[in-house]
Design a protein around this nucleic acid. Sequence first.
DNA 1: TGGGGTCCT
DNA 2: AGGACCC
Length: 602
Amino acid sequence: MAVETERRWRNILTSQMIPEACGEGKLSEPSTARAAASSPELLAASRCILAIDMDCFYAQCEEIRHPHLKGRPVGVQQKMLVITSNYAARACGIKKGDSLQVVREKCPEITICNGEDLTFYGELSQRAFDVAARWSSKVEKLGLDEVFVDVTELVAERFRALDDPEACLRLASTGHEYPKESESGSSEVRVRQGDWKDLDDAHRCWARLALASEICREIREAILSEIGLTSSAGISVSKQLAKMVSSWKKPSQQTLFLPTADRLGHLLPDDLPVQKVPGIGFASTQKLHELGVRTTGEVLSAVVPEGEEYGRLLTEFDAGALRTMKALCLGIDASPVKASGAPKTCSVQDSFWQGPVRTDVQVRDNLLALAQKLITKIRSDERMYGYRPIPTFSLSLMHAPSSDGGAARRGRKQMQLGSFQIARQPGEQGDDERLQGQIADRAFALFRKLVPAEEPFVLHILNLQVGFGEALGAQRRLSFGASAPSATASAAAQLQAPVEDIELTDSDGDGEAGRNQTPPVSTERPDAVATLVSMGFAQDRAQRALAQCCDVPRAVEMLLAGGPSSSPTRLPRRDVSSRAEKRQRLNCPAPEASGAIIDLLD
DNA sequence: TGGGGTCCT
DNA sequence: AGGACCC
């Protein structure tokens, strides 16, 4: 390939690499790629990222909850809107935001389910997350129906696990390959592991992505067989590109995006409307449109710092935002897949557009109902993620000053809860009914600060939110993890060493020894509890131990040690994993190299 | 238009 | 506390 193309290619790949090696996850300017850009080791480290998206998630959940609905037209309603529908309903022409009226006209035989309570959706979402977490510790939630999975390490481990350098790999990617019309996988190439080092970086990158596409298929298959959810997915070197191709073929299909040489100048089409780019949202799109900028190509030609249009852009965006936008329009995104841990906030909301709330008594009633929902949700979060302090509480609302006067306004008031505790300790049996009234009292006080007494109002939205603090008892866990490598040491090693250089040795001396000896656990609660009960532990002790430990092995340790104790323990960190966990992941379904990988021909 | 979340300023 | 982004 031409020298210039080659250079750009390296720059682009480098900018999408492992963020720690690239400078704090910040987007890199392609034209100012770092000196490290030419380092072959870094180039070889381009990431493998999956974006997995459940098809019409709420509607699928309703089909699971009510199996007789399966295949018939189903819509999910919130207030007066049908927010989503299954594919049988979409065949009638139903679109995402249609009103209930329109939907009934288009499809009289449709079944409408109320989707205002998200509890069940949240449970299935968590189970899907836990499935993905068996393949990687880096799983990031985006809403209830989407996850990013960074499988870079697993890909590297599977390649390394080929202990016979003469063994042949059959290489073919799984699923579609953007923008090819036919399914890939038909053309295959045999490669010996010993040839690996002779491949150039581009081909290595493609081979790794092809293996990632196979891993993606495994994860989606597990989500389907274990939960019953179909999904669509994208595979590429960044969250952005993976996400953008994930919707190319739907439903229940996946697409691989290879950063091939012929696309390097324009990883994204020049005429792509800006709002299609993830990261450019409603507000930015409005501003760009006012400036006459509608496509990625127009952004790129306008964002040249010496150019005429740049000054106009600077009136609406700051320089940092412009750099980010430029990178996104080039198809460059170095943002890391952040392991989603326990939620940081918990909120409940209700809206009243059709039946306006105008009196203090109505507000009180609604606050009581919201407080009840909030407590229920908090208790659920505590069961799933452990017990954490709850230091802050806030109310936000949208209201109009009077019935027909001014425009809707938003407001928010926060307070510190101090000695008033919503959180419970693991063993504690609090009086949640009294708590409900106390929460409503405080919420009403906050409401008063936003809407003074005697002032007329029409309330449209009420929202209660709590913020979680750090888990207590950070030191307690050290006593459990003595035999495992410490989390911090492992993290430090990863920061200093390229992925390829760590975990090369198997301390058991036998690469096969650990295979399948540990049941896949992760954080899935119902199964985990059942596992512990089947091992002879009492159910309530098992639940409490799991709430504190989050995984079966640690819960077993705790139970054997006489726990769970009444003092809360720190949650295990999701973003570092022990050697045992890694080995387990490596040996996850289908570790065989035979089904792997790529079309090495151009 | 809903009922959730995250991060940045 | 508000605003941006995501679903």
